[in-house]
Design a protein around this nucleic acid. Structure first.
Length: 347
DNA sequence: AAAGCGGGGAA
DNA sequence: TTCCCAGCTTT
């Protein structure tokens, strides 16, 4: 399909995007640097995560302040890393970022690799992130395909087949490859992503303002809104969870996550795993619902009037100051803040 | 090829 | 509610 575009077309398409971006491109902290480590940190934070989320809570700035370079990050403790990543989700990203730092120090003498294949080889870095670092940090040509680019390309080529298949992905990368700029890799890749983010949006694409509408087979078509097409629909399963909120003065009792989910983070103890003494009375503080991966979880929070007595029944638990909590899964943090008062009273 | 992995914002 | 977000890894 890209065969429909001649060499001149491709060049004009690139120029139009780059020119539009020069006029309309937004400034982000990670666009003001060419430090590959800083760019990589931003890219990992942004995987499946909206720009707004990263910006609003200053994850990027805080991360670079705490771990300004590869050496500092390589030596950090898991606890520090998870605390800095707390609330962002997909916590293996943080662990992989540290593994990458250690890998570069050991295998590349501390020099960030500039070759695409070497970057792709780093833990947690797939085709998209490798292309992003290659182009954004080193201004070298590399195709990228993310959620934004997928919208732009499927609409430009009126691609109405599912994109979450092997064939669909192959087609998208093929197009991205064919359109990659060898003149201005950094600007072009930034431009096509920003186009998808601001004009070629999910809801109602702003074709009227689009700098590349000339080349678009879905221009002003209602069909544009329905692209891209996905085939997978994840079905949500309901789950329930009973947790124990034990507060003693300014302290709260926590246990560490064991499974693969939220590994290394802390949480409220799971009441269903605790054998409560026969004559011990517990009461329900409240209930909240949250979503995680393919589950919708209804979480009950239980407590007691005599927390110290019950704490002995909780395996491998530790007391933490509520003012200085370790990295927690978001729902547990919310529950503590909502149900635990300042002076140990539990609602 | 499919499933697992977090959390939040927007329609 | 559902969908999506600067995706990657494991099964």
């Amino acid at each position: 399909m890209a065969e429909h575009l001649s060499k001149t077309d491709i060049s004009d398409w690139q120029d139009a995007l780059v020119e539009w971006f020069a006029e309309n491109g937004k400034s982000y902290p990670w666009r003001e640097t060419t430090d590959p480590y800083a760019i990589l940190a931003s890219e990992l934070m942004l995987q499946q995560t909206q720009i707004r989320t990263v910006l609003e809570r200053s994850y990027y700035e805080r991360w670079l302040e705490k771990f300004p370079d590869l050496e500092t990050l390589a030596k950090a403790s898991e606890e520090e890393i998870l605390k800095a990543w707390e609330g962002l989700g997909y916590y293996n990203r943080a662990r992989n970022l540290q593994k990458t730092a250690q890998h570069i120090i050991q295998e590349h003498n501390g020099e960030f690799p500039t070759a695409y294949a070497d970057i792709l080889d780093l833990p947690g870095i797939g085709p998209y992130t490798a292309g992003a670092v290659t182009s954004f940090a080193f201004d070298r040509p590399a195709p990228i395909v993310d959620g934004n680019v997928i919208r732009v390309l499927t609409r430009v080529f009126a691609y109405d087949e599912p994109i979450d298949t092997t064939a669909g992905k192959r087609q998208l990368w093929e197009w991205a490859e064919a359109l990659t700029s060898h003149q201005q890799p950094r600007a072009y890749n930034s431009a096509i992503m920003e186009l998808g983010q601001t004009l070629c949006t999910k809801g109602s694409p702003k074709c009227l303002l689009c700098p590349v509408a000339t080349w678009c087979q879905s221009r002003d078509q209602p069909s544009a809104q329905s692209l891209p097409i996905k085939q997978k629909k994840t079905k949500i399963t309901d789950k329930s969870e009973r947790t124990l909120l034990l507060v003693d003065g300014s302290q709260v009792l926590l246990v560490q996550e064991t499974g693969s989910r939220r590994k290394g983070l802390w949480r409220l103890p799971d009441l269903s795993k605790i054998s409560v003494p026969k004559n011990h009375r517990t009461h329900l503080c409240g209930e909240m619902t949250y979503a995680i991966t393919r589950y919708r979880v209804t979480m009950q929070v239980w407590s007691t009037r005599s927390p110290k007595a019950l704490a002995d029944s909780v395996e491998a638990a530790e007391w933490f100051s509520i003012k200085d909590l370790p990295a927690l899964g978001a729902p547990y943090r919310r529950a503590i803040l909502e149900f635990a008062g300042q002076n140990g009273e539990v609602s």
